[in-house]
Write a protein that binds this DNA or RNA. Structure first.
Lengths: 183, 183
DNA sequence: CGTTGCTATGCAACGAGTTGCATAGCAGGA
DNA sequence: TCCTGCTATGCAACTCGTTGCATAGCAACG
């Protein structure tokens, strides 16, 4: 429903091929909107048919052609309309929370396994936070004024950083709680 | 893939009908796993066929029968296996973040509309936080010891509270940033 | 020289989840 | 009395998204 719009924003920031978009979704955009390359190719095809984007084939010698996409006037209009529409409430899916409540119906062994899992999970969030902070130091060193686009990118990144810090604090709380149960 | 497990946890906490489950998903469980009544009825049927849950028909005079579900031994075993499996990384879908980055490609009018939207969005999160805090005061007043289930429910609720507080802080940051652009 | 991995795109099949609609009786308010 | 809303379940059609697989050439490593 909204992958189209995430793609439009990404292509406005920088035109590119489906493959390049897929890589951006693994990095920058993927912080707040995930998508596989399949889904991206599929949606790009439809967007091209509907005239939201235009494609330019770029030959590259031996390799298969690259199709570089840019946003067309129709796509820009669609995006503007969407931007002014109400924000839909997010569909929350937090598997770990389900597991924690489920741990009440498992034994001490199961809870020990969950503690190990939470520690592993915590480590991935810790490295995510590191990555965000590295990116922030690189892109927003605080020297010189920022334009509109950069200021908006920065505030979204700050959201990601705040989220990761909150998660890490909560996971410490979870670990302390789990460890306090079987003792 | 994991709605089954959320249902199993909810039914272990308290057996009930599809309708009752749907209402729980609007309230308690829905904090970290959303589902419509359609999806719940569908999955319950399959779980019954697979022997994960058993249903008991409860006649209610004139009204259609209620089918109250309980977790069977197979279902408990399935849940235990799942609880010990690695936690899958969450698929993030944060529409507002896409809109904020997209606002760089809209004009001042569009950004003014976005500010209004963010304010409305902020108000819904504020009332969500209020609801959580009210529930916390009611269910965990701090008098007397808690059993395992309650302690786990409380730590999940604390996660929800921390999340809402983080969101509110971030939305203030977003509003300040948006207001700083066109001035 | 073979294996691995990267760029680059795509099909086919499936599973997950939403939306609209339908039924049916009861309770309560305008 | 009519309308709204709640309990209680379900079908049908659709969209969204994932998974597995396939192709194809090139570069780098051992």
């Amino acid at each position: 429903m909204a992958l189209e719009h995430a793609i439009l924003v990404s292509l406005l920031e920088q035109p590119g091929s489906g493959y390049e978009l897929a890589r951006r979704f693994e990095r920058s955009i993927g912080r707040f909107w995930t998508a596989t390359h399949q889904q991206i190719y599929h949606v790009l095809k439809r967007m091209e048919t509907d005239g939201w984007v235009t494609a330019e084939a770029i030959g590259q010698g031996g390799r298969p052609d690259k199709r570089s996409y840019s946003v067309a006037a129709t796509g820009r209009a669609v995006l503007t309309t969407w931007l002014r529409a109400p924000v839909q409430p997010e569909a929350v899916r937090h598997e770990l929370a389900v597991k924690i409540r489920g741990a009440a119906f498992d034994d001490a062994d199961g809870r020990a396994a969950l503690i190990t899992e939470v520690e592993r999970y915590r480590a991935t969030h810790e490295s995510t936070l590191e990555r965000y902070l590295t990116g922030e130091r690189r892109d927003f060193p605080g020297t010189g004024p920022l334009d509109t686009r950069q200021r908006l990118q920065h505030v979204v990144l700050r959201g990601g950083i705040a989220y990761e810090r909150m998660v890490l604090d909560w996971l410490d709380d979870v670990l302390a709680t789990l460890r306090g149960l079987d003792r």
